[in-house]
Nucleic acid binder design. Structure first.
Lengths: 237, 237, 237, 237
DNA sequence: CATGAATGAGAGTTCATTCAT
DNA sequence: TATGAATGAACTCTCATTCAT
């Protein structure tokens, strides 16, 4: 788990009760930041949902910024832990990719697109509102996918005619969109959507098959030849 | 152009000078909202960049919200106009798709990911912060792509085994990611990136194996036929 | 006059009305800071005395700190202007000294010991809460006195056996004390007090007179000699 | 020792351990108040330096105000005890004055100008922030000096043409200034500074000219007498 | 006896918005 | 038309203080 960069405002959290409070606050903060974004989220909103005073929030976190950093870091910590624990046991480029897609989609589903937007929008702040802690986590988070991609390229499973970063964007990009779509519907079938997305992406990622292209050409040639043949009037007997 | 839902505060935009003012304000507002997001953007920032007083902004727009809605609507208006003007003159599913991708990417490039984030993040606000005007525009904006996709499916150019909405997400999703990547680099080659993205997506979108399998079958059939033909001894004269 | 280091919060003060507001605020701020010290002074207190909202104060000054710096700087500006305008026309070390004492005392009288404490206490903050602007002014303010002192030493009017800084402290120190005393009484006779203080300090500052000391010694020697003489029994004739 | 005006919050200080705690707290409180002034000092700062919780401080003192009063009172108690114990054994107006100056300067040196400022600034609060306990101590503290001065006047050692309060201010005033100067330098030679300040002040305090004039007259008389004596021709034997 | 935990009251500061001129 | 001026409302954050354990 990543360590918090700034210490709690006034007290060291030690007891079990404290730890629970911190968890509660982080949970609510995650919700509020998700729903309203960093700038629009308010500490009083969080406090009210928790049923405590605002001061209590500041007892455990040194400020709004700190709280948000913790929320984002924790999110990364969770998904990174999940990936790093399971991915090594999966074999096959396609299977690994499917696992990453499903895991990512699952997380996004649970936390909602708001948190996703938070992480993307606030994470890319030009001013380093949030320390480089987050940048480090971002890199660590995308590392497994990049590894799978580059291994896949090396093994000939994945096309090598496009930059990896483009491939990465092609995988992470759709997922958020899928989620935003999904949020409007009642239910989302994560398993089914993961499968479908994998299907689509896997096909796009595969090395362009020259054989297939050649066959397409052949088909066209044949068709033309046939047409020519058919147009040719029969020779008189 | 889409009409603003709320009328200007006090006066109808009539004179030429007024129209120019409005344009200037919208231009600056677009910049500021792009750079800082809705909540962090301030009217005084806009006023200062314009070299006018805050009050002037409120003379032409009834409030920050109204201004932001106009900015977003105008953005949609522009890109929709561009698409609706050109797309009909393009033939071929693949060419249409490429055009849509390039146009979208180009817009994103010009306006930056900030505006993109604004449109995505603020556009999806669950509270009715921004009227349903925007929802309508969103739908109108994606309509051409959906049409191309469904036409493509009908023509057999595009796979029919996946929901259209998933296909759409697979196209729009990567583009934002590409842009966020791009922003960190000095230059982005829109043309090249568009081509590459098209390559990847097109391959993913195409009807899956069956066609290839069919072609493989065709090849085999042809080969057999040829062999039969070749094996047939010439009839003696 | 020293320029403000930080610009007003949101607006440039230009019109006559604005300037008056600024003056009013500075006047009240001077009072409040004087009465309660920097830390205990509150912006809402100032606003209430002015009969305006707190926000108005922040319209003209970028913050409490800025306001306090301006108060202190203005105080220095006033007294420095007064001194630099008049001192050159005064001749004689003693007369100059008297002028400086009276002027300083007068200022202190008008502004009260609170402002004096503010300037001394907050001005010496180890953290540079207030920029070095104030340090510069402090130096400029004490410069004339130091000049008078060193000139006086050179001319033989002032003793040269003590460091100038000690002399300076001996002059400025009592004045504050005098004022703190004075504040409890109804009236203070600045002219009279200035004269008396000058009398005392001037005598202390003068070169210790070796002649006087020698005379004191002579007196003692003579007394002893006389006693010896008197004790000596008369010789019989 | 002066009694605190308000009793400890819940319990009488009885056990030895308790008394030590109280001393520790007072010591740290003195430091913190010295460094930051009353308003800017915080109880948590004290608690942290003590390594105890904030609540502990409030177990022994009923509040911040109470604590500060105790700090100031204790400071007075210490210096008053020191003075009242030693002063009676010193003879001679000049020696007594020197002792008072050195003692005061020494205290100031040890406790720093911060405490001095605290005592002066907070002590003079017009609101009854701190009871009149402190006023009583202030009077008791300056009493010995006033006694020395009035005795000196009576004995003809000190000029009688100026109010005693002015003389007092002339003594206490410079000392603080000296200290503020001193704080910026590395070391301060208390003994040397005390001597110099005594020299300066003593000269200022002495009865003015008449004595010098008298001595001048004496010199002249003596000279005349001597000349007469010398002019007298020796009687022949 | 000590403290972990909580908080009410208030501080400084920001900002969209109004309105008389 | 444009704006100088003002502000109410809300925000983040601090801190002395209380109290059950």
């Amino acid at each position: 788990m990543s360590q918090p960069k700034t210490l709690p405002a006034r007290r060291a959290p030690s007891s079990i009760k404290s730890e629970q409070r911190i968890k509660d606050i982080l949970l609510v903060a995650r919700q509020v930041f998700s729903e309203r974004g960093y700038a629009s989220a308010t500490t009083i909103d969080m406090a009210r949902r928790l049923g405590v005073s605002e001061a209590t929030v500041f007892t455990y976190f040194s400020g709004k910024r700190d709280l948000c950093v913790r929320v984002i870091c924790d999110w990364y910590d969770e998904i990174i832990a999940e990936i790093e624990a399971t991915l090594p046991h999966i074999t096959g480029t396609r299977a690994k990719l499917f696992f990453l897609i499903r895991t990512h989609l699952y997380r996004l589903m649970i936390d909602g697109p708001g948190l996703c937007a938070l992480i993307l929008s606030e994470g890319r702040a030009k001013d380093d509102t949030f320390g480089d802690e987050i940048v480090r986590l971002q890199r660590r988070y995308t590392a497994p996918l990049m590894q799978v991609l580059s291994d896949g390229v090396a093994a000939g499973d994945i096309r090598d005619d496009l930059p990896l970063s483009l491939l990465r964007s092609s995988i992470y990009g759709p997922m958020e969109h899928v989620l935003w779509d999904a949020i409007s519907k009642k239910t989302v079938d994560i398993e089914e959507t993961s499968k479908r997305l994998s299907l689509l992406l896997w096909q796009g990622l595969q090395p362009p098959n020259p054989k297939v292209a050649a066959l397409g050409q052949l088909q066209r040639d044949m068709a033309a030849a046939l047409r020519t043949f058919e147009d040719t009037p029969n020779s008189p007997e």
